[in-house]
Every structure is written in C-alpha cells, then in structure tokens.
Write a protein that binds this DNA or RNA. Structure first.
Lengths: 122, 122
DNA sequence: CAGATTCGCTTCAGTTCGTGAAGCATTGCG
DNA sequence: CGCAATGCTTCACGAACTGAAGCGAATCTG
C-alpha cells in the first residue's frame, strides 16, 4: 500500500492531474503569459477553469502572478523555477504522443501561434 | 491556438489525466497485476473508477487483460509496450516530487509491498 | 453444516468537478 | 452612442468520481 503523502508520484499526480493543468503549464513554458492569451490558445477551456487552475498553481508556487494597473487591466502569469521543473514531464508527453499516438505539433502552423523561437524544454 | 488533435501533448494529456490513471500505470509498472492488488495499493480508489481506468487503458492499448477461469476468478492486467513507454513520465514525476515536494517513497516500507527488486523504469 | 472470505467486478445515490453562456467595470475607438 | 478588449465571476447544467452495498461460486473457519 502506497502512502499518498510520502509518495512523490502521488503528490505530483495531485498537482498535475486536473483537467487542463498540464496544458496551461506547457503554454506558460512556451511563452504565453496573459489570461486571454492562454484562453485563446487552450481552445475550449472555460474561463472559470483557467482561473481556478492559475490560482491553484499560484498557491503551489508553480506560477507567479503580476498585475499591472493599466486599462484594460493586464495580468501576467510566469512559471517559477518550481514550475519550469515540470518541463521534462511535458517533453516526455510530447515524445510519447509522437511515438505512440502518431501526432505531431509541426502540422500546419496556424496564424495565431506565436512566432518567436521559444525553447519549451531547456 | 493549439489543435487538440494534432498536438502530442494534448493527446497524451487526454489519456493520462483522469484521476488515478497515472498511479494505476505506475502500479502496473511496479509489478502489481491483479484487480484487488491494485485496489489495495491505491488506497481510496473506488472499484468503479479502477474498473473504468483499466477498461479505458485497455481500449487505448496500454494494458492487456488476461482472465483465468478459476475460482475465485483471476484477472491479470499487464502493461503493453505502449504502456511501458509511459515509464519515463512517471520517473519524471517521481524526480519532481522528490526535488520540489520534499517527499520520498523510501519512507518505512510496509509489509504489504512486494519484495522482488522490480525495475520501475527500464 | 452455517457463516465468513475471496475475487472481480456492477449498481446506486450523492458529491465534487468542469462547461458554456452571460455579465461586469473601465476606457478608448469610430 | 455602440462595440471591443481585459480579467475575471456567477450560474445552471452535465460529467466525473466516491463510498457503500451487493453478487455468484467456491473454499476456508468454527
């Protein structure tokens, strides 16, 4: 019997296993930082869920939130080192998807995608 | 905007992000193979959820199910190569948990745990 | 011989989680 | 004026998950 509190896989699973959580982190790792940017990238996520995810990740110390008192208001979310440390996980998922699910991001780049060469995995 | 169908991270996330899914896979990778074995190891999972997970993973080709017509009936679940390929993901989670969540499986081995030196990650 | 136990589930009612649409406050643009 | 943009919140609904109970056949316990 595996203890939920002392097992690192369990604890990581708890953090990571909400719907959309990993995709939010991936987007942040790829350079997206604003709420509406994430909302548009993650087609289909409800703003409520995105809000909940970001809040939870902030509480975990995985993302940092900075608000700028402009109009319209601007809020930026950035991965902390603790968040960046999840990058290998996401890389593994990408590798797995390519190898075993026969899919690849390189299929027809849309006109919405950001252009700068962002390194997802350090 | 990321296409849900052509993005390997999304597709992997869909498979992997149900509650308990990754822990079921970890247990299978560690050598547990029977329903009740998994049920006892994953303290707190409902048999319904475990059943659903195993069925879904079977449909995905991640686990294989063998039934033995004994009494009481015996059913064994084993990871396919497609399932074993998820081991690095789980290893990363373990590493992350240890490094950033300050937890470690090596805490007091219980008398229920299997003894053989099973290599979780090939 | 009655009763409990084992296995691999299924069923049910109830709770929690996620969705989709709408709305809000502010201000600039046409 | 009317609409767009931002970063959310609220609400009602459906989907997902839980916890307890049960089942059918055989075998172990008293």
């Amino acid at each position: 019997m595996v203890d939920r509190d002392t097992c690192p896989v369990c604890r990581t699973a708890e953090i990571v296993c909400g719907k959309w959580t990993l995709l939010v982190i991936r987007d942040l790792a790829e350079g997206r930082s604003r709420f509406c940017e994430l909302e548009r990238s993650l087609a289909g996520i409800s703003p409520r869920t995105l809000s909940l995810r970001l809040r939870a990740l902030e509480e975990e110390g995985i993302v940092e939130r900075q608000t700028f008192p402009e109009v319209p208001p601007r809020v930026e979310y950035v991965l902390t080192p603790k968040g960046q440390a999840l990058a290998p996980l996401i890389e593994d998922m990408r590798t797995y998807g390519r190898q075993w699910l026969g899919v690849d991001c390189a299929a027809e780049p849309s006109d919405e995608i950001l252009r700068e060469p962002v390194a997802a995995a350090v």
